[in-house]
Design a protein around this nucleic acid. Structure first.
Lengths: 222, 222
DNA sequence: CGAGCGTTTGAACAGCGTCAAAACAAGTGG
DNA sequence: CCACTTGTTTTGACGCTGTTCAAACGCTCG
């Protein structure tokens, strides 16, 4: 969705929500922004598009993805309410972002963020902090992708979501295919691993999109 | 190698080289530091050790690594002369660093870097820049690890080294095992892929540690 | 109740890993 | 200069994990 297209009919922006307001991009960094709604699988921004905005999930869930030329897909990360995404230093996005289900996203102009960082050292350090946190997450994920087997990957994924939700019961907003592209597997392998975990009593699957973790330590590696 | 152990006999610090001097950590950021030499496979810093220093390769090559509990290893990155490594925001290193061959590394106190960033916005933004560049590299590497096959991984690796050396002839400081742990493969698969590339005329292998790239486009994916 | 999508399950296959041995390179001492 | 040692690389044979292809199942929502 390009900024120029904000007023196309497909956009559903409740007037009260879309009105300009302060968005907390980082701790102690509130900047003026606005909120937009997206339908399931709608693109929030595309690869190669200019990095005019920084985004923050208000409700729902977002995935950021990259593709190889032949269509192989990788999901870079899942973004839940409160998470910031799309903050890059280059002029063009290196990945695309899509709404997973119905969701609301807050937008802040990147220029506003950059200006704040230029005048305020504390802000600049917070941005470094943000990038570093992101970096550490990616490092953990790289270890998963390079050296863990299917069961370890799915286990780590469930524990990650459980930690982010601070709950043993996890609601999965994303499909098996999304999970597969996040973990570097196929959707069949993800599904089989879920089933196996359930048979082994490590989890319960009241429904395909709801998981209850019964034995967290058995899902852990390193 | 802990700072406390600087003067142990295993250290070989030529006096002239070890003397305090200015180190360029980032563009427009020179800070006082010193240079140390390391023997092949010697540890420069270990996981969990305090992040007291920031490092920059002067000569030779360095690998940064992470391990799973059972010993599975991942190489996070290879660092060549001019590259900065070990700059983390946390109090403890999240990975270890080892000299690949005989090498020299410049050290700068992390506190000095942090102080510079506190007083100078331009420095703080450079550090963000450094973290962002690092981030983009990792994102590319993640796509490689999650969705590319063995030939594509080895091809990308050779092209990466070729680009960093700005030459079609690449000198490999690291072993097949190191390459494997960087690419998420086994050393046998890496070796087989090298051999296959040579049979197909994509590369020449004058010696195991020297590669001449003959057909770069055939090694590329995406 | 039926259509459509997402999920699960099965069977066959293939790519990469594992295990093992041979080839090779570099250094050491006789 | 050669025999010997040690570590790295290459190659081979085989097996397993995860993929591919296909079909059945089960939600969810008209």
């Amino acid at each position: 969705m390009r900024p120029q297209e904000f007023n196309t009919p497909v956009m559903t922006i409740p007037a009260a929500v879309a009105a300009g307001r302060e968005i907390e991009i980082a701790q102690d960094l509130n900047l003026p922004g606005f909120v937009m709604s997206f339908a399931p699988n709608e693109e929030i921004f595309g690869e190669e598009e200019p990095t005019d905005f920084v985004y923050k999930v208000v409700s729902g869930a977002v995935r950021t993805t990259r593709f190889l030329a032949d269509g192989r897909r990788q999901i870079d990360g899942f973004h839940l309410p409160g998470n910031v995404f799309g903050l890059e230093r280059g002029e063009a996005h290196r990945f695309s972002a899509e709404a997973i289900g119905e969701c609301e996203v807050a937008l802040v102009r990147r220029r506003a963020v950059e200006r704040a960082a230029e005048s305020d050292v504390a802000v600049a350090r917070r941005l470094w902090s943000l990038a570093s946190d992101n970096l550490e997450q990616l490092q953990d994920h790289m270890l998963l992708l390079s050296r863990k087997n299917a069961a370890e990957r799915v286990g780590a994924f469930l524990l990650e979501l459980s930690a982010r939700a601070s709950s043993h019961t996890v609601e999965l907003p994303m499909s098996r295919g999304d999970i597969a592209d996040y973990l570097g597997l196929t959707l069949e392998t993800v599904s089989r691993t879920f089933s196996q975990f359930a048979r082994d009593g490590l989890i319960e699957l009241p429904s395909p999109r709801r998981v209850v973790i019964r034995n967290a330590s058995a899902l852990t590696v390193s």
